[in-house]
């Protein structure tokens, strides 16, 4: 198990290197530079600034310098925020994004698995169809529309919960709900499919025939398998949450990483864009690894390649 984990972690390094290289190359292809301003800078001052950030060096040199920094855990300085390292910015904003994402994930798991079970256990009934319809709706509603609806219909009508900012858990309510809609629907669909599939399988029928109580069959077998299905798709789920977080953080004025990325691209803040991209990529790579490990643990039939013990 440990060897497998180590091997997978080693494999992640070239992946992240590819990500870093591709992003670096893309950034240098962007038109416009980080220090073009409305109030034009005298050339002397521009030269001073470019020298300070080594932007006057050949691109290959800059690339080498950046990678060397990365190895030391140094993401470089931010161009837009003089006096702030990219690492500082990430340290402040990453936990916020994670909190928001975790809140949304918990909501989505509870609601999604619940709805999926409710639909799958009564497949073909009106209840099932209604839930299917709702999940389709959840997948189809863009976060900015749902966010606007929640703000207008709840926050302004009742004066609560807050329609923005990040002060106490109450402030996470509306953004987490908005962010959770898509994954909830997705999880519900997965759970439903898996419940229907499992319910028809031999071992469940056998268990029933053996007189294991209906409730036990449901909860132990069906739930376990449903969770397995959800866990398999944890990677895409996480990607969904990240995608959604850009807009949600923007709408609700939440100081997470997504907000930084958007402004960093328009500001041509190269190191900040690189930093955010790398953190997101690392998150996805790690979560894929975690999924494989958890999957092996939930379903012992799967042997992990490279796991000798």
């Amino acid at each position: 198990m440990i060897r497998y984990t180590a091997a997978r972690l080693l494999q992640a390094i070239p992946v992240l290197l590819v990500v870093a290289t591709v992003t670096f190359a893309l950034l240098r292809l962007l038109p416009g530079g980080p220090f073009d301003r409305e109030k034009a800078l005298p050339p002397v001052i521009l030269a001073n600034i470019e020298a300070r950030y080594h932007l006057d060096e050949p691109v290959a040199r800059q690339y080498a310098r950046y990678l060397a920094g990365l190895v030391r855990g140094d993401f470089g300085p931010s161009y837009k925020y003089p006096g702030r390292d990219v690492a500082d910015i990430l340290r402040d904003s990453f936990p916020v994004s994670i909190q928001l994402g975790a809140a949304a994930l918990v909501l989505a798991m509870l609601l999604g698995v619940g709805a999926g079970l409710a639909a799958g256990m009564r497949a073909g009934t009106l209840q099932d169809r209604a839930i299917i319809g709702l999940t389709l709706l959840g997948i189809s509603v863009p976060s900015f529309v749902l966010g606007a609806a929640l703000v207008l219909g709840v926050a302004l009508r009742f004066g609560w919960p807050p329609a923005g900012l990040w002060e106490s858990p109450a402030y996470a309510l509306l953004p987490a709900l908005t962010l959770a809609a898509f994954p909830t629907a997705y999880i519900a669909q997965l759970t439903r499919t898996s419940v229907i599939e499992v319910a028809g399988r031999d071992f469940v029928r056998t268990a029933r025939a053996k007189g294991v109580s209906e409730a036990r069959v449901r909860w132990v077998h069906v739930l376990r398998n449903a969770l397995l299905a959800v866990v398999t798709y944890f990677g895409p789920l996480l990607a969904m949450l990240l995608t959604g977080s850009f807009v949600v953080e923007q709408i609700f004025a939440i100081p997470g990483m997504g907000r930084f990325f958007v402004t960093a691209v328009t500001n041509r803040d190269y190191p900040l864009v690189m930093g955010v991209t790398l953190v997101y990529a690392a998150l996805i790579v790690l979560s894929n690894l975690a999924v494989d490990l958890v999957y092996g643990w939930l379903d012992p039939r799967i042997r992990l390649a490279g796991d000798e013990s």
Binding site: L156, P162, A163, G164, I251, A253, R259
Partner: peptide, 13 residues
Amino acid sequence: VDMDSTALVLFEQ
């Protein structure tokens, strides 16, 4: 708060 519309809702709250 960079979206003026969000700031306005917060003002009204």
